[in-house]
Amino acid sequence: MFQSRQGLGKVPRPLTFLLCLNCKTENSRPFKDGDYVFKEVEEKCPKCGEQRMVITGIYVREERQQAR
């Protein structure tokens, strides 16, 4: 009773946005368990190589709507 053959849709994955505490460069990567906004993480900055970054945002990127 009450069986559905349709599969469940994919859930959008958020991105984590990090700011380098040294050169202030912002970059993003897929969200990892344990991430939260304003958390200081020990991750290497892709630009200057500094090991300390802060998470400035976690959100799902939206596709820009084309202007009509």
């Binding site: 959008p12 976690i58 959100y59 799902v60 990127r61 939206e62």
Partner: peptide, 9 residues
Amino acid sequence: ITPMKESIA
């Protein structure tokens, strides 16, 4: 109630 969207952030 779903993961935060860019426009909301």
